[in-house]
């Protein structure tokens, strides 16, 4: 048990190191989300507080979704096949997928917070219940990375990974996205938190389902 936890830690550390050494990719993603926010800001030509709450919220989550897809799509194409084979001789596939999901969650968390800050900075923040909104950001980071990591693994095996990644992940991510939109809208309106708990529970349940499935299915994926 402790051994596998140690291996998991080593794999996660490897992911972080790899990202840090290829800083251009990380910087690219940071710039991507800031750029996307700014494009939306200028396209709407909105002064602070002019967007209605629904538009504000939806636009933010759409930006999050596209950032997530772009950031996670590269989690399997970054390394060459030979090196991946080498990892598989060292660790079990379950550990590899968990390490990737863990790393992607951290990455998505950073991107979400950065995106949120930029977004609130340029477009103003009409949020009444900020802790709950941050909780939805965290739940979103876990859910996006759990479901998109496996999809990116699937897409990376095919001929045109980029298109396939989008086609496969949009419908898969939608239930999660709708629930996140609902809870974050509740947080914006400052509704009583008891209203949101059932949705938070459902989001957690969906997160659990996709995590378990990634854990179960990834061993079949890497063998090919």
């Amino acid at each position: 048990m402790t051994e596998s936890v140690r291996q998991l830690g080593a794999l996660m550390r490897k992911e972080f190191l790899l990202e840090w050494r290829q800083r251009y990719a990380l910087n690219g993603m940071l710039l991507y989300i800031v750029g996307a926010v700014f494009v939306c800001y200028l396209s709407f030509n909105a002064r602070r507080g002019q967007l209605t709450p629904i538009v504000w919220n939806t636009l933010f989550w759409i930006i999050q979704l596209f950032t997530a897809i772009n950031a996670i799509a590269k989690s399997f194409v970054q390394e060459r096949a030979g090196r991946q084979l080498y990892y598989y001789t060292l660790a079990s596939p379950q550990q590899i997928i968990l390490a990737k999901i863990g790393y992607n969650t951290a990455l998505m968390g950073v991107l979400a917070v950065l995106g949120f800050c930029t977004y609130a900075f340029v477009l103003g923040s009409p949020i009444a219940d900020i802790p709950l909104y941050l909780l939805t950001l965290a739940l979103g980071a876990v859910g996006f990375s759990a479901s998109l990591t496996l999809v990116s693994g699937i897409a990376s095996k095919a001929e045109n990974p980029a298109t396939l990644m989008a086609v496969l992940s949009f419908p898969i991510i939608l239930p999660l996205l709708l629930l996140l939109l609902k809870v974050s809208k509740n947080a914006m309106d400052g509704l009583d938190r008891s209203v949101s708990w059932s949705e938070v529970g459902t989001i957690l349940a969906i997160d659990a389902i996709v995590l378990t499935l990634s854990w179960l299915l990834f061993p079949f994926l890497w063998r090919s």
């Binding site: 699937i154 095996k157 496969l168 419908p171």
Partner: peptide, 10 residues
């Protein structure tokens, strides 16, 4: 193999 994995996930 890969489409079976996706089918179960879907």
């Amino acid at each position: 193999r890969i489409s079976a994995v996706y089918n179960i996930f879907a």
